[in-house]
Each structure stands twice: as structure tokens, then as C-alpha cells.
Design a protein around this nucleic acid. Sequence first.
DNA 1: GAATTCGAAACTGAATACAATTCAGGCGCC
DNA 2: GGCGCCTGAATTGTATTCAGTTTCGAATTC
Lengths: 230, 230
Amino acid sequence: MAKRESNVDRVYEALRRMAADFAFKPDQRINESALSEVLGASRTPLREALNRLVAEGFLTFQNNRGFFCRPLTPSYIMDLYEARVAVECEAARLACTRAPDEDIAALADYLNRMEPEYQSATDPEELLAMDESFHARLAQLSGNSELQRILNNLNGRIRYIRLIDLKRMRDRAGGKAPGDISAHRQIVEGIAARNTKAAVSAMRSHIEKRREEATEAVRIAFSQLYVPDE
Amino acid sequence: MAKRESNVDRVYEALRRMAADFAFKPDQRINESALSEVLGASRTPLREALNRLVAEGFLTFQNNRGFFCRPLTPSYIMDLYEARVAVECEAARLACTRAPDEDIAALADYLNRMEPEYQSATDPEELLAMDESFHARLAQLSGNSELQRILNNLNGRIRYIRLIDLKRMRDRAGGKAPGDISAHRQIVEGIAARNTKAAVSAMRSHIEKRREEATEAVRIAFSQLYVPDE
DNA sequence: GAATTCGAAACTGAATACAATTCAGGCGCC
DNA sequence: GGCGCCTGAATTGTATTCAGTTTCGAATTC
């Protein structure tokens, strides 16, 4: 039995996780040799993984200077959320037009099954995973794999900001999750009723609301990043 | 004067062009050593370039089996066009909301300056470059660099289908270009008037119209690809 | 004659070695 | 004292090499 997962994949996943955990500070230059030692792989697979992350927008690259962590600015996060609006609203629209009734019902079911868990969960990672899962399933209803792909990429880059946001909310509200599953339900109901306008506008306002929170969270992130190392 | 463009970039550009020229047939396996000889570079930079193309959706990759040209199907092209609708409609919407008047005027100007050239051009590549340039500028008006980035990626993958489409049109119409610059003008007018609804719906119908042509073009492409080598 | 297994050739995966470039610090010159 | 050039240390860019996997074909067996 050979290994099913290549070294590059392993390194790639590790890097993504590191990026989510702020192992790289914005605009920081990434040292290949040092990283390859940490990750236990040579520079060749490491560079392949880094290149993938560049193409996906997680990192940047300058000729003969190497890889850099992407700068983190409020306007960058804003851009990502606006792109999400574009992708998810169109996904909702397409779902309204052509998703089979049974698939829509399945999503509504999923929402119902998840609700208790969603209401009781306090772990931000868990909450985020459920939220992303819902949005990914909805994108699936569009039947368009490009939209799914783009959304997946956007979510990957937004994730760490959302985590900060959720942690902040939990700390403020004393362990209470935001838990606005109602917005999700509203979207699904719009789709089920084949009411494109309602579904799209519910989706839009849902994401835009989250955007406000996230841009605020970026400022928190700034303060966390640029204070002396804890 | 040192080279400003790295070897990887050169290889990457060459590969993109090869993909656009059908140097690889859909689902064809790509031989790294052979390719590296053709391109005059070793496998290391070649693989970096290939990985970038995978991340951008131009190629696929299977563990221990290598790189493959992506399959070309009508539904794949459909997906790309639908994604374009999502991105460009939102870009138009954002432009309506917040693009400075002078930038909108500049785009209208650009359209006017280009019109004679657009009407007289017969070379499909030239036409396509102008069309893409317009859409890219419009995306710029949104002020959202993510949307620009996504659009650029989508256009890169749609390009070769559009080229086939345009060539077909030219051949059918006897050298006459489609030249429906009027749709572009309509979109810009909508934005200039800050009429979001008009601008977005003009954009949507414009792209969806092109989508119809393109899915037809895919069938042409199929016939071109799967006949015995000329 | 067909199917299966074994083996060799071809190809990919990854590491290492070396060349080219950048960057920082120091020295000399203005 | 400040500016610019030069040198070397560090880092990236690319080639080469070797190991592991896949693939294809031929030989053997049923």
C-alpha cells in the first residue's frame, strides 16, 4: 500500500493551516530553506505548494525575491466579501431556476438537522465549518462547478478573518454564538418557492451583514498582529 | 540589464498560448520531459508553471500520473460563462454605486475612440483583445481587485473558445465582425446614469447572448479536435 | 486463443548541488 | 559627514540525479 497523499499535498495543507493561524505575518517574506526544514520536505515540493497558494491568492510572489504573505487590509477583506456576494447571489439565482425540488428539500432538511447543533455549538471552528458547509451546499444547488470552485477559494482566504470575528463575538457575548440560522432558512425558503428576487436579496443582505462584522474584525486582527509577540 | 522575466514566467506564458492553440487535446496526458525539451527549460521550472496552470483551472493533475489537459465540454463552457455573469454583473453594480464620474467618462471615451477600430477590425484576436479590454476596464470601475482577478482568470479559460467562435462568425459573415459595440455602450450609459438595474440587466443579457454562441462553438471545437490530425 | 502475470522501460516525485541574483554592511571618495 | 560603490553572505532559480510508481508488452499458462 503506497501513500495516497503526495508530499506536495501534505505541505500544501500545512501551509494553508499556517496561513490561517497567522504563522506568517502580512507582507512577511517567506524563507524557503527554513520553511522546508520545518515542514520536513525539500525545497522542490515546498515551492510547488507555494506556487499553488500564489495562484489561489493566499500569497504573492516577486521575481528573484521570493514568496510573501499577502498583505491584510480592510479593503482586501472587503473585496473578498463583495466577490462572495457576486458568486453566491448568482448561485442562488441559478438554484432558483433549475435546482431539483428534492435537492432543495435536502438542503432544508440539512438545515433542520443542523439547527440544534448550530445553536449549541460554541467552538468557533465548528460554527464556521457548519456555516461554510451550508454555503457550499447552496452553491452546489446551482449546478455550476466554477461557482463552487471560486467560492471555495474565497472562503479559504476569508476563513481566518471570520475565525477572529467569531472568537471576538463569543468572548463578548459570553459563549453565545451568533447563530443566525434564520438568514439561511430565509434563503432556502426563497429558493424553494422559486422566488428568485427574495432568495437573492436575502443572500445579499446576509453576506453584506457579515461583511460589516468582518471589516471590523480586520482591525482587531491588526492589533493582534502588530503588538509585540506574546 | 538583467532579464526582467523569469524562466518560469516565460514557460508559463508559452504553455498558456499552447493551451489556447489546442497544442494539447482535451484529456491528453502531458509528458514533462518532452515538454521541457521543447520549451528549453528543465523540468523544475516547467512543473512550477504547470502547477500554476492547475491552480488556475487550465489543467488537471493526478497523483503519480502527471498533468492532463482539462476536458472540454459544453457544460464546462457554460459554467465559465455563468461565472462571468456573476462577476461582471456585480462589478457593474458596484461601478454604479461608487465609480467616480470621471472614470466612467473615461471608459465611455475609450469606447468612442475604439469604435472605428472595432468596426473595421477583422482579425479575431484583435477583436477579442478589444472586447476583453473593455470588460477588464469595466471591472476596474468596480474598484474591487478580486473581481478583476477572477474575471481575468475566467477570460483566460474562455478565450480559446471565443476565438473559435469569432473565427466561425468571420467565415460565415464573409469577414464581417460581430461588432455589437452597442451592447457595451448601453452598459456604460446605464452606469453613467447610475441606473443599477439597467446596467446590470444590460450586462447580463450581453454575456448570456455570447454564451449561446460559445456553447455552439464548443461543438465546432469538438469536431475540429476529434477529426484525424490534419 | 484469451487472460493473467511478470518484468522492463518510461515517467513522475523529491532531494541535492550549483549558478545567479539580491541585500546588507563596510570602505573609500567627494 | 554623507553618498556611492564594492564585496560577501544569504537566498532564490534551475539543473541534475536518483528513487518510487505506473504503464505497456511479452511470455506463459489455462
